[in-house]
Amino acid sequence: MQRMIRGWGVVALCVGAISACHGDHQRGRADRTATRGHGPTMASGPGSGLTRERVSRWGKPSAPVDVRLDTRAVGGGAYDVTLIATPRRDVGALELDLDGRTLVVGPTRAGEPRTMTTRVVLDADGGREIAGSAGMEVGRHRRRAAASARLGAAAKPAPRYRIVRLPDGSEAAEVRP
Protein backbone atom coordinates (compact mmCIF):
# COMPACT_ATOMS: atom_id res chain seq x y z
CA MET A 1 0.00 0.00 0.00
CA GLN A 2 1.35 3.36 -0.96
CA ARG A 3 0.64 6.37 1.16
CA MET A 4 0.35 9.98 0.21
CA ILE A 5 2.17 12.40 2.43
CA ARG A 6 0.33 15.65 2.48
CA GLY A 7 2.16 18.64 1.22
CA TRP A 8 5.31 16.89 0.07
CA GLY A 9 4.18 15.68 -3.31
CA VAL A 10 5.75 12.31 -2.81
CA VAL A 11 3.91 9.15 -3.66
CA ALA A 12 6.31 6.58 -2.34
CA LEU A 13 9.97 5.94 -1.90
CA CYS A 14 10.21 2.21 -1.69
CA VAL A 15 13.03 0.69 0.28
CA GLY A 16 13.95 -2.55 -1.37
CA ALA A 17 13.03 -4.09 -4.65
CA ILE A 18 10.08 -2.86 -6.62
CA SER A 19 7.92 -5.69 -5.38
CA ALA A 20 8.43 -4.60 -1.78
CA CYS A 21 6.02 -1.73 -2.37
CA HIS A 22 3.29 -4.22 -3.10
CA GLY A 23 3.98 -6.76 -0.45
CA ASP A 24 4.90 -9.55 -2.80
CA HIS A 25 7.90 -10.69 -4.75
CA GLN A 26 6.55 -11.15 -8.24
CA ARG A 27 9.12 -10.14 -10.82
CA GLY A 28 6.30 -9.77 -13.34
CA ARG A 29 4.89 -6.90 -11.40
CA ALA A 30 8.15 -5.08 -11.70
CA ASP A 31 8.09 -5.55 -15.43
CA ARG A 32 4.61 -4.16 -15.75
CA THR A 33 5.44 -1.13 -13.72
CA ALA A 34 8.60 -0.50 -15.65
CA THR A 35 6.77 -0.42 -18.95
CA ARG A 36 3.68 1.39 -17.81
CA GLY A 37 4.83 4.89 -18.51
CA HIS A 38 2.57 7.52 -19.93
CA GLY A 39 3.79 10.76 -21.33
CA PRO A 40 7.41 11.56 -22.02
CA THR A 41 9.95 8.93 -21.11
CA MET A 42 13.62 9.25 -21.72
CA ALA A 43 16.31 6.77 -20.97
CA SER A 44 19.92 7.66 -21.41
CA GLY A 45 23.39 6.63 -20.49
CA PRO A 46 25.58 4.03 -21.99
CA GLY A 47 23.50 1.15 -20.85
CA SER A 48 20.27 2.04 -22.56
CA GLY A 49 18.81 0.90 -25.83
CA LEU A 50 20.40 2.14 -29.01
CA THR A 51 22.98 4.09 -27.07
CA ARG A 52 24.45 0.96 -25.58
CA GLU A 53 24.89 -0.54 -29.01
CA ARG A 54 26.86 2.43 -30.26
CA VAL A 55 28.70 3.41 -27.13
CA SER A 56 30.08 0.02 -26.31
CA ARG A 57 32.70 0.03 -29.03
CA TRP A 58 35.04 2.68 -27.65
CA GLY A 59 32.82 4.24 -25.08
CA LYS A 60 33.44 6.10 -21.90
CA PRO A 61 33.70 4.49 -18.48
CA SER A 62 30.21 3.86 -17.19
CA ALA A 63 28.30 2.82 -14.12
CA PRO A 64 27.05 -0.77 -14.32
CA VAL A 65 23.42 0.16 -13.97
CA ASP A 66 20.63 0.94 -16.41
CA VAL A 67 18.50 3.87 -15.34
CA ARG A 68 15.28 5.19 -16.74
CA LEU A 69 12.35 7.33 -15.73
CA ASP A 70 8.72 6.55 -16.36
CA THR A 71 6.22 9.38 -16.07
CA ARG A 72 2.46 9.26 -15.82
CA ALA A 73 0.15 12.25 -15.89
CA VAL A 74 -2.43 11.98 -13.14
CA GLY A 75 -4.32 15.20 -13.85
CA GLY A 76 -4.27 18.66 -12.39
CA GLY A 77 -0.76 19.26 -13.66
CA ALA A 78 0.53 16.39 -11.53
CA TYR A 79 2.77 13.55 -12.65
CA ASP A 80 3.91 10.38 -11.00
CA VAL A 81 7.56 9.88 -11.85
CA THR A 82 9.20 6.52 -11.28
CA LEU A 83 12.92 5.89 -11.34
CA ILE A 84 13.81 2.37 -12.36
CA ALA A 85 17.41 1.35 -11.75
CA THR A 86 18.58 -2.09 -12.81
CA PRO A 87 22.19 -3.00 -12.01
CA ARG A 88 24.09 -5.06 -14.52
CA ARG A 89 26.15 -6.62 -11.75
CA ASP A 90 25.40 -7.73 -8.22
CA VAL A 91 25.93 -4.71 -5.99
CA GLY A 92 26.13 -4.27 -2.25
CA ALA A 93 23.94 -1.19 -2.29
CA LEU A 94 22.27 1.18 -4.72
CA GLU A 95 21.84 4.87 -4.02
CA LEU A 96 18.75 6.14 -5.80
CA ASP A 97 18.20 9.83 -6.33
CA LEU A 98 15.02 11.26 -7.80
CA ASP A 99 14.26 14.93 -8.08
CA GLY A 100 16.53 15.79 -5.17
CA ARG A 101 15.47 12.96 -2.88
CA THR A 102 17.84 10.17 -1.98
CA LEU A 103 17.23 6.59 -1.01
CA VAL A 104 19.76 3.84 -0.35
CA VAL A 105 18.71 0.27 -0.94
CA GLY A 106 20.66 -2.78 0.06
CA PRO A 107 22.21 -5.65 -1.87
CA THR A 108 20.73 -5.97 -5.32
CA ARG A 109 21.34 -8.70 -7.83
CA ALA A 110 22.14 -8.11 -11.47
CA GLY A 111 18.94 -7.58 -13.41
CA GLU A 112 16.85 -6.84 -10.33
CA PRO A 113 15.04 -3.52 -10.78
CA ARG A 114 14.80 -1.08 -7.91
CA THR A 115 12.34 1.76 -8.05
CA MET A 116 11.51 5.03 -6.42
CA THR A 117 8.45 7.14 -7.18
CA THR A 118 7.62 10.74 -6.59
CA ARG A 119 4.75 13.01 -7.52
CA VAL A 120 5.51 16.27 -9.21
CA VAL A 121 2.95 19.04 -9.54
CA LEU A 122 3.58 21.68 -12.16
CA ASP A 123 2.31 25.21 -12.29
CA ALA A 124 -0.20 25.97 -15.01
CA ASP A 125 1.58 25.96 -18.37
CA GLY A 126 4.78 25.05 -16.55
CA GLY A 127 7.43 22.58 -17.59
CA ARG A 128 10.31 20.94 -15.76
CA GLU A 129 13.19 18.58 -16.28
CA ILE A 130 13.18 15.78 -13.73
CA ALA A 131 16.45 14.04 -12.98
CA GLY A 132 16.90 10.57 -11.57
CA SER A 133 20.07 8.62 -10.99
CA ALA A 134 21.56 5.56 -9.38
CA GLY A 135 25.01 5.22 -7.90
CA MET A 136 27.03 2.34 -6.54
CA GLU A 137 30.51 1.40 -5.46
CA VAL A 138 32.75 0.07 -8.21
CA GLY A 139 36.11 -0.98 -6.90
CA ARG A 140 37.12 1.76 -4.50
CA HIS A 141 34.98 4.60 -5.84
CA ARG A 142 31.43 5.46 -6.75
CA ARG A 143 29.93 5.61 -10.20
CA ARG A 144 26.56 7.04 -11.11
CA ALA A 145 24.22 6.83 -14.09
CA ALA A 146 21.37 9.23 -14.71
CA ALA A 147 18.22 9.70 -16.70
CA SER A 148 15.92 12.65 -17.13
CA ALA A 149 12.44 13.35 -18.36
CA ARG A 150 10.64 16.49 -19.39
CA LEU A 151 7.27 17.15 -17.81
CA GLY A 152 4.71 19.64 -19.05
CA ALA A 153 5.55 22.41 -21.46
CA ALA A 154 8.33 21.76 -23.92
CA ALA A 155 11.79 23.13 -23.27
CA LYS A 156 12.93 26.28 -25.00
CA PRO A 157 13.91 25.37 -28.54
CA ALA A 158 17.54 25.40 -29.57
CA PRO A 159 18.76 28.68 -31.05
CA ARG A 160 18.26 28.93 -34.79
CA TYR A 161 21.27 28.86 -37.04
CA ARG A 162 22.05 29.69 -40.61
CA ILE A 163 24.60 28.16 -42.93
CA VAL A 164 27.75 30.07 -43.84
CA ARG A 165 30.00 28.54 -46.47
CA LEU A 166 33.65 28.67 -45.44
CA PRO A 167 36.54 29.27 -47.85
CA ASP A 168 37.44 25.57 -48.01
CA GLY A 169 33.89 24.68 -49.04
CA SER A 170 32.75 23.29 -45.71
CA GLU A 171 29.69 24.63 -43.96
CA ALA A 172 29.35 26.40 -40.65
CA ALA A 173 26.08 26.48 -38.70
CA GLU A 174 26.16 30.00 -37.32
CA VAL A 175 24.16 31.04 -34.27
CA ARG A 176 23.88 34.76 -33.62
CA PRO A 177 22.32 35.98 -30.40
Binding site: G45, K60, P61, A63, D97, E129, A131, G132, S133, A134, G135, H141, R142, R143, R144, A145, A146, A147, S148
Partner: peptide, 13 residues
Protein backbone atom coordinates in the same frame (compact mmCIF):
# COMPACT_ATOMS: atom_id res chain seq x y z
CA UNK B 1 38.45 11.44 -14.17
CA UNK B 2 35.07 13.09 -13.79
CA UNK B 3 31.80 12.56 -15.63
CA UNK B 4 28.92 14.90 -14.89
CA UNK B 5 25.29 13.96 -15.35
CA UNK B 6 21.92 15.17 -14.16
CA UNK B 7 22.34 13.03 -11.05
CA UNK B 8 25.51 14.85 -10.04
CA UNK B 9 27.99 12.65 -11.84
CA UNK B 10 30.98 10.86 -10.39
CA UNK B 11 34.68 11.31 -10.01
CA UNK B 12 37.74 9.12 -9.63
CA UNK B 13 41.26 9.88 -8.43
Amino acid sequence: YMDSNSGGGWGYN
